[in-house]
Design a protein around this nucleic acid. Sequence first.
DNA 1: ACGAATATGGGCTGTCAAGCCCAGTCTGGG
DNA 2: CCCAGACTGGGCTTGACAGCCCATATTCGT
Lengths: 220, 220
Amino acid sequence: MEAATEPRGPQKLTNKGQATRARILEHAAELIYTKGVHATNNEQLRRAAGISGSQLNHYFPTKESLVLAVIEWQAERVLAFHRSERFTRFESLDSLREWAGFYLAYERSYQEGCSLGSLAAEIIKTDLDVRTELANSFEQWRDIFRDGLERMQGLGRISAEADPTRLAYLLLSAFQGGMLLAQVARDIAPLKAALQAAIDHVQTFAPPLTSQDHDPPPPY
Amino acid sequence: MEAATEPRGPQKLTNKGQATRARILEHAAELIYTKGVHATNNEQLRRAAGISGSQLNHYFPTKESLVLAVIEWQAERVLAFHRSERFTRFESLDSLREWAGFYLAYERSYQEGCSLGSLAAEIIKTDLDVRTELANSFEQWRDIFRDGLERMQGLGRISAEADPTRLAYLLLSAFQGGMLLAQVARDIAPLKAALQAAIDHVQTFAPPLTSQDHDPPPPY
DNA sequence: ACGAATATGGGCTGTCAAGCCCAGTCTGGG
DNA sequence: CCCAGACTGGGCTTGACAGCCCATATTCGT
């Protein structure tokens, strides 16, 4: 899964090289997340990562290759986070609320926005050829929600009439849009409202609850 | 309402000057919408608007002032569109569906995204001092939906238990997020799913309909 | 242990765009 | 009819950043 980003031949990186590359990547991701792609230059990156000029040319011959690598790195982080045990594969409404709660408590939500979404929006109109990679990542993200919702259906936690794809897009869109609005307003309120409403909507497909802590009655 | 963007003294623009300024603004908005802020330079703008260099300095001394003016111009357009008679002040679910339908039929939705949102996302992390203006515009946008939803409540079209502010943020967030996803995927589907789901959620607050074409039964 | 390949350091150059200036033209009021 | 102020045109300078190169140090395979 880490074999991307090098078009030419075999792996030609030693351990130390890989470590350096990873360090550059981490600092690049952080800088880009806070300052944006355009406002991040290689001098800042050099200072932050404690390296000097020619490494960037060596590990990332062009800025486009660096940005692409950062996208992959951020995408991997976000997807891994959503797949983590914390959210139990989104098989319950509670896991969705837990998920929303995390981002609502995360200060950087309304400061920097989504690590992938804000990056995507900034560069989607430039000539950088990264759209396909972004599209792929967002598809996987959507699939995480969709698969969870489908499992909820299988468990009878939401009605069979719910459309998991549509709900997954609602969750992801509300998240991205809410992040943008929160960032612009410097206030978490828009994100909170959007996520609560989106999850409320998923809940409208839950069967009327009889006893609260047990699984709902047999599916229909 | 057009008195913004000039910090210094009285209106010092003749009719011809205003026309030229407006022409520059239109072309700047179009270029920025399609190519992004960063990829739009003054030479392209000169050619597009049929003017030459020093006007930009005359009418828009810095790029920041130009971008700010474009934001105001786009915001005014978007808000005026949403306030137009077409949507009857969003006093019904049908008007919401009409609204969604418009953007789903608009090819540029998934090509360029939202004229205000994509602009906001691109420059929110730069040092351009335009955040307040953007925040203001998005607040007004939210208010259009919120006011409409409140009127729906007054007319008994949705339950008093609905939270108009929250629903307004859901609609706006789903729109912005859906626009971003559609743009990245080059496919209208994510926007369609998000908007349908968001409007479906508003509809869950509608009283069960008895006869379809009449106003719903008296408000509780 | 040795040699070849690979990583590192710092500086250099070409490109591009924003901001600015001077000279010429037009419009409107008296 | 005239003049004063505003508009227009094109070119120029400065600053910033990405990409590149040469000299040196280090690491890895055998």
